[in-house]
Structures are given as structure tokens and as C-alpha cells.
Amino acid sequence: MRKLITFVGSTLVAIGLLSGMTVAADDARVMQEKQAAEMVDTTAYKKDGPYKIGVAAGYMGNSWVVFTLQHIRYEASLHDEITEVLVTDAAFNPTKQVADIEDLISKGVDLILYWPVDDKAIEGALQKAKEKGIPTINTGGGFVDSPSVTASVFIDQWNLGEMVARRLFQDMGGKGKIFAMLPIAGTTAAVDQLAALKEVMKEYPDIELLTAEYGDWNRAKAKQITENLLQKYPEIDGVFSPAGQMSIGVAEAFDEAGRLGEVVMSPGDEYNGWLKWVRANNQGGAVTFPTRVGQESLRLGMRILRGESVRKGMKVPSEYISPGAAGVYAEMDRPDDWWASELPEEWKPQ
């Protein structure tokens, strides 16, 4: 028994020590804006076609990425001078992504588009590409400032979070209690969206943030967490949830608890399952997380290969779509795990 008491006691002391740790605040946003506005000298990359394009995917296992890649392929089809698009999939393995990038270099690609598993792990491989005159473009959800990256084509998570928060607070009449459902803790998406939410909250003193939770982009987990929060909080007036696949789980939990009527859902994104929900419930709407970032990335790459000067960071802006309009984008005969996009039908994933 004494041993057990000693063990429990020491564990509690450890908890106390660790709980005291605080996370340092990050105000790198202003710096990021400045870095993104810098111009890149592309003369070293200028070359005539035909071109071989390399795509080093950090992972292919989610529908957003699948649509983004289809946008790259579609854009490539519009350029006669592009003869081939080579795609590698690192399946969340940073070591494999390094090898993939080296493979693409040895296959003589003229441009590398990539989305990382771990930015730091692939810096060396990207640097090799740059030294061989191959521009590298980070494509997706965040800006990267590194000598090994020529440019970033990205969706500004902070801006997206700000738009979602403003719309939610307007829909709530500027007051009430909310909780935030965020992606994986520590990711750029989660950090920036929460920072933006808190920033907008300064303008709305009557909005109270009950808690910020992390649903890991997982519908089932978001639902489970919401089921618990519904037990804890007798009053929840709004939910900040920019990711549509989690918003459905949240809304379902409210619905099953018979409390959907009391809550205002924030805009999600153009995830088809969410758009179906918006259409059925005529609320929420969407702030887009555009899969055409892939298309814009290849367009920027082509400008670099032509030797045009470009910005180091190019934002693909998110747009607000009202509930009425968002419902129109819902494809009812398609799966939930699908994205509204302007891809021609034959270029959508089969």
C-alpha cells in the first residue's frame, strides 16, 4: 500500500510541475507578412520547355490533398510545354519524402511542387534541388520561409480563422458563449485559427470562449468531444469550427442532444458533407479552403520557369459563401468526403 501511495504521490507532483508550464505566445504574423512580400529573383531558373513537373507529396491520404493534386494535373493539361507530371507519395514519412525529392531530381524534373510531412527534415533535399536550378514551391496550408524554398503558394489560416470568427459573431448578434473545435494541436492551422479567434474576440467583449478543443480533423473525435462539452456546459450559444469535416460531428452531437436549436454554427469549409448539412439546415455557410491552391502553385511555377519575378509568398484567398449559396455547391449524389471545386467533371477524382 505504501508503494502505491508513494507512486500516486510522485505522479501527482509530476502533474503539478508539468501543468505549470506555459506555452510562449507567437507573434510571428507581422514578420511573415513581410517575408511573403519579398520578391524572388528567378533568372537562375529561367529555361525553355518542354518541362517535366515533379510533385513530392508528403501524403495522399486525405480528400483535400487528392483534389489539390487533381488541380495540378488539370493545370498541367492546359500547358502544351508540360510533357509529364511525376508524383511521389511519402505517406507521412519524412525520410521517404527526402528520398522522393532526390528521385525527382535524378529524373530531371524542371520544377518541384511539394507539401511537407516535416519542413525541417526535407530542407537538405530541397536545397539540392535549388542548387541544380530546380525551383521548389511549398503548396498548401502554410507559408515557409527557408533558403531551400523558392516560393510558397498557401492559404492563410489566420485570415481564414478571422473570417470564420467575424461571421460567427455577427450571426450570434455579438454575444454568447462559444467553444472552438480546432485541428491537430500544434499545427499551423490550429495555432493560427485560435490566434485569429482570440484577436477578433477583443472586438466582441460579450463573447466568451468556454474552451478550445482539438478534434484532429476527425469527425468521430469531434463528435465525442462535443458530447462531453454538452454535459459540462448548460449554455453553448455558438461553435467556432472552420473545418467542415469536424463541424458535421459537432452538429450531430448537438442534434442528438436535442440542443441544435440553441447553437449557431460558424462557417465550415467547402467539404461536401458540411455543405450537405448547410443545405439541409440553412445556416453556417462556408469560408473556403480552396483546393485550387494546387493549380495556382503550378501557375506560379510556370512563371518562375519563364524567369518572371514573383513574390516569395502567394496567398490563395479564402472566400465567404453564405448558407443559401453554399447549399447550391453541395453535391448531394457525391460522398461526404468530397470537395466543391471548379474542376471540370473529367478532372474530378474518379
Binding site: 505522479t11 508539468l18 501543468s19 478550445a212 478543443e213
Partner: peptide
């Protein structure tokens, strides 16, 4: 989750509960 701990504290306490539960089990 329901007690309303901050996410990072949730991880610590959840892990501790599992460790304590397995220790109590052995006991």
C-alpha cells in the same frame, strides 16, 4: 474533457490516469 481542463493539461492527466489505473490494477 468534461471537467474542462486545458488541452495540454488534459494530456498530462489522461496519461496519469492510465498509469495510476494500471498501477492500481497490479496492486
Amino acid at each position: 474533457n468534461i471537467v474542462g481542463l486545458d488541452y495540454n493539461a488534459q494530456l498530462i492527466v489522461k496519461g496519469a490516469i492510465i498509469i495510476i489505473a494500471s498501477s492500481a490494477y497490479i496492486y
